[in-house]
Design a protein around this nucleic acid. Structure first.
Lengths: 338, 338
DNA sequence: ATGAAAGCGCTAACAC
DNA sequence: GTGTTAGCGCTTTCAT
């Protein structure tokens, strides 16, 4: 727990110089920079982040707000953000809003405003105007991932195009009775992904002259059991059984695969199923899917933030680049029966 | 961004009194406490955590170190810890060590030592002696969850008893050829859960006079595909097919269920399968399992820390209480065939 | 390129 | 019970 003054003494310079040498701002000759670095190392010196933050106004810490941790997408984005932040010497403090209203209010009213963070990343969350403006008023950059926030720079996939791509894959195989398992209305509140994906699905159908059949749409909750239920209904219908399903998430798609099996239907011989995500289990289930890359999204969010936070640093300038997605064809899709 | 002095002025007291009134330490009359609280609220005052930390030496922040986020157990423990910390007014800063050696070193050498955290919780990680002692030297309480750390207070399940319970459930149904899918040696390095569970499994068998058959043990990697592979081998063996499987995790158990199905075996009619965890998908698969409660473990870790950190506060005194576990019987286990 | 010195906003003795 | 005051350990003008 050596202090900056001990380092200064050992290096034979002033504390001001030590600060400059170690932080990299301001002029320091190469010679002293080396001397200081050596002294710091010898003493196992590590800056006190509190003292540093108090004096400089920068905390080198970013807050990450998520609706839940136990979810592949959120966890992956956080992992990506964490490792990018670590590389930049930043800490990540996590605010999980699973608890609901009270918790959320307390996070915004007390925690994020304590000068603890330089910026915040909101994942899969639609913030209220009040929340956004209170952060804004504090001068804290805010960036959204996986869900557009009004008036805030957000990394968000082109959900319409993604669902369209999945649907086009099935159309190109010759399917015409294609069902869709999407999110229910309750998921549309927080980000419009469900409707956007439905729009993409319907758009692809209409483009080839097929009018979407409302009977071939089922809402579900993005979980595997939810997808299972929905697919059971779709595939068990005696009159209008689809030959293919586009599910809005891989977990729902996997649920659909299991539902098909339980009905004695063979995937992809009797029914083709495509998901969206490229979840870690999708390979195992042979699921054809449109991959998104959440780890990368976390990294990209951090890169974008760094441009605000460290102007003139090695700016990766990745902001504004549209998020990539990619069709991955496995064994859950094929030409329709006969 | 009002400061403490403005609050003091508005309330007509000194800054010291404001500090005392808001933090709850030291004597303040009820009347002034109310006045101060009102003034603080009127001004939207929030303490600057940096200034407060610098002056007091306490950060009200705890570091949580995990090997990975994208895993049910870790994510659940973190969720539990996060919400418990929030209630106590603490922040959680997350250190994810997925990246490996370099990242890990940097976390320990630079991040945790920056006076940023008051304590650290290590989840599912075996820390080296050097890591433990550097934290110790800084006077930072350290507590482990899900993996005993030498010389450190850890919350850890009685893995022997848990595996024994799962095995006894099968024995009591009349099974005698019971296989075990456990962790490979590589997982034993970080915490001895795999061997302990195997010991529990073998102990239960020996207690009823059955000598464990090494041919009925398969190592796997705790994942669903890993469990699938292992179960395929076990169940495909023409000579010594087990009538039941104890898997060391629910994900491996679910993989086993799928393997059985793919072989045309009916669960539980042809083969019984029991897991350990009570993973979120276990209900869906009808899996009999021994539940552990990771959220609760995260909360308990925080409660234990608070006893160090806030002596004399409402101590939940939960430390040292053994972690609960519970057999949950669903539809994946039954009497053996005929 | 480097040093001196004035804070950053709060807490904790200590005095009353 | 409350006020006064001296720091906490750094960063950053401003000189030089």
């Amino acid at each position: 727990m050596a202090g900056i003054d001990e380092v200064a003494r050992l290096a034979g310079v002033s504390t001001a110089t030590v600060s400059r040498a170690l932080s990299g701002r301001g002029y320091v000759s190469d010679a002293t920079r080396v001397k200081v670095a050596q002294a710091a190392q010898d003493l196992d010196y590590v800056v006190s982040s509190n003292a540093s933050s108090l004096a400089s106004g920068r905390t080198r810490n970013v807050g990450v707000v998520v609706p839940s941790l136990n979810h592949w997408f959120f966890a992956s984005v956080i992992e990506g953000a964490e490792s990018a932040l670590l590389r930049q010497g930043y800490d990540l403090t996590l605010y999980n809003l699973t608890g609901g209203g009270e918790e959320r209010k307390s996070v915004f009213d007390h925690f994020l405003l304590r000068q603890r963070v330089d910026a915040v990343i909101a994942i899969g969350l639609e913030l209220t105007e009040a929340e956004v403006s209170s952060l804004h008023a504090m001068g804290k950059p805010l960036i959204g991932v996986g869900g557009a926030i009004a008036g805030v720079f957000s990394l968000t996939m082109d959900d319409v195009a993604v669902a369209r791509l999945a649907t086009e894959h099935l159309l190109s195989l010759g399917h015409t009775r294609i069902a869709h398992i999407g999110g229910g209305k309750e998921f549309d509140l927080d980000f419009h992904l469900p409707s956007n994906r439905r729009i993409g699905y319907e758009g692809a159908l209409r483009d080839v002259g097929i009018e979407p059949d409302p009977g071939l749409f089922r809402p579900a909750d993005f979980t595997l059991p939810g997808g299972y239920e929905a697919a059971k209904q779709l595939l068990g219908n005696p009159h209008n059984r689809p030959t293919a399903i586009v599910a809005s998430s891989d977990e729902m798609a996997i649920g659909s695969v299991l539902a098909a099996r339980d009905l004695g239907l063979h995937v992809p011989h009797d029914v083709s199923i495509v998901g969206i995500d490229d979840h870690q289990l999708s390979g195992f289930f042979g699921l054809t899917t449109v991959a998104q890359f959440p780890r990368r999204q976390g990294e990209q969010a951090v890169e974008a933030l760094m441009e605000y936070l460290e102007p003139g640093k090695d700016a990766p300038a990745s902001a504004g680049v549209p998020l990539p997605y990619e069709l991955i064809v496995r064994s859950s899709t094929a030409r329709p029966p006969q």
